[in-house]
Nucleic acid binder design. Structure first.
Lengths: 260, 260
DNA sequence: CGTGCCAGGTGCCAT
DNA sequence: ATGGCACTTGGCACG
């Protein structure tokens, strides 16, 4: 930890923030503040105690005591302005594109902390939509016995078809994969099916493959003669274990503190 | 600030976390850790230094040194488990619905902080889609001269029409408002127009009103004989100033520390 | 409670 | 840069 100051006064705050905000440090300021934002929209946040975090890439977060989400933020700050005034410490964070500004006015500072985090590890995640695509291609029978995948990402005037296949009777099958299917998914699938039917002048099946389904969406599908096949997310994830094991290795964590 | 401990050992960590995680405090733990998540998806995050924040409503955030987003998180935690072991401090955060778990293994603790934030202010924001709706209703000529709004949220079999209106020549006009229009927006508007044309057996205009537009979406609109009208977000926001001023008042901030 | 839908969405990868 | 799209989307409002 580089620095921690409890109950700093505004001039301490100005000094520390001016020194560290623009550099490769994680800076935290907590205290009683109000926040204004103007840019793509405009917001006002009255006085309250919050935790403000400036990350090492200049991302800015204003967190209240609740919620996953910050109350205000700036994904990337291009210009900082810090000014201690008689009755407040003003912190302005401006972003150029889009042009947006977050202004934080502290009336009281509870603490101020400067640290540096070293983290070169990437998050490895499995369970995205693309992983379902891969599972289907590896093992088409999770959708249907004797299904043969013809093409992935087949282009049509209406967009890209996730998986294009033929069933055991030779029918063309359009497969749309969605992690979180909704009303729109059905319309999208419908459009693809229409496109392919036009193209081949044949009857074409449309299957929505998803790990979950709601009654409403299912009704909507069936009204249109489309089908649903559920897929277990655990199976999709499981196929990753083997891949992952083969690539497993110790992390090469080696703290390499860099200043600036 | 309730507590701050620099370089706590695992048993300090266990003690403090056990005491405060389940209560109405903001808890921060920073240190070298690895994180596993399993639930709707599955992820692994190798060793690295991170800032872990538990908010007063039990939201959990695992922030790396960069990015607006946390690397792992839990919007709401139902069950905590903390255990100091010989070589690590294990923190498990489980959520019941959906069933998900985040496991954080600290190999080294840099600091541990317990605070309590008091914030009863609501964020007032202007610039949402609904605000565009209101602007149109207040002053339809921002879309077109002599436009008359007939109905808002008119229901059709294809969904709700944002604004239903008539132009100076008496034609029906379907208006779809979008803050971030895309490909799907066009299809949605098309469906509404089709519905209304069926209903009245008349030619019906469709207008997409949005603060921004891309060439691709514009082409797609025009191919279908639909129109686009841009709206200045600043105008939408401006109309708020007057409303806001009339309601402006001092915040009644009054720190009321509650334990549990 | 499920369902739909917006978001200052953010982030990622394609062209 | 721009567009198109998925997200452990989160969050809210509504039936």
């Amino acid at each position: 930890m580089e620095k921690i100051i409890k109950n700093p006064d505004f001039s301490d705050g100005e000094e520390i923030l001016s020194e560290y905000l623009r550099r490769n440090f994680t800076v935290q300021v907590s205290g009683l503040c109000s926040v204004n934002y103007q840019g793509r929209a405009k917001s006002k946040l009255d006085r309250g105690e919050r935790l403000v975090i400036k990350k090492q890439d200049s991302a800015l977060l204003v967190h209240g005591p609740e919620n996953y989400q910050p109350k205000n933020w700036q994904p990337e700050v291009d210009e900082w302005e810090v000014k201690a005034q008689e009755d407040e410490l003003l912190l302005k964070a401006r972003r150029k594109d889009p042009d947006e500004i977050v202004e934080i006015r502290f009336e009281d500072l509870e603490f101020l902390m400067v640290t540096q985090l070293v983290d070169s590890s990437d998050l490895k995640i499995r369970g995205h939509e693309i992983d379902i695509h891969e599972s289907i291609e590896e093992d088409p029978k999770i959708v249907e016995e004797e299904l043969k995948v013809v093409e992935r990402e087949r282009e049509t005037p209406a967009g890209f078809i996730d998986v294009f296949a033929r069933d055991s009777e030779g029918n063309y099958v359009v497969i749309e994969v969605k992690r979180n299917p909704d009303y729109n998914t059905v319309l999208q699938l419908q459009r693809y099916v229409d496109e392919i039917e036009d193209e081949f002048s044949l009857n074409v099946r449309g299957i929505l493959v998803a790990p979950k389904m709601t009654d409403k969406v299912l009704d909507y599908l069936e009204e249109r003669g489309l089908e649903f096949v559920g897929v277990e997310m655990e199976d999709v994830i499981a196929s990753y274990e083997t891949i992952d094991n083969s690539q497993k290795g110790l992390s090469d964590f080696n703290p390499d503190y860099e200043v600036d």
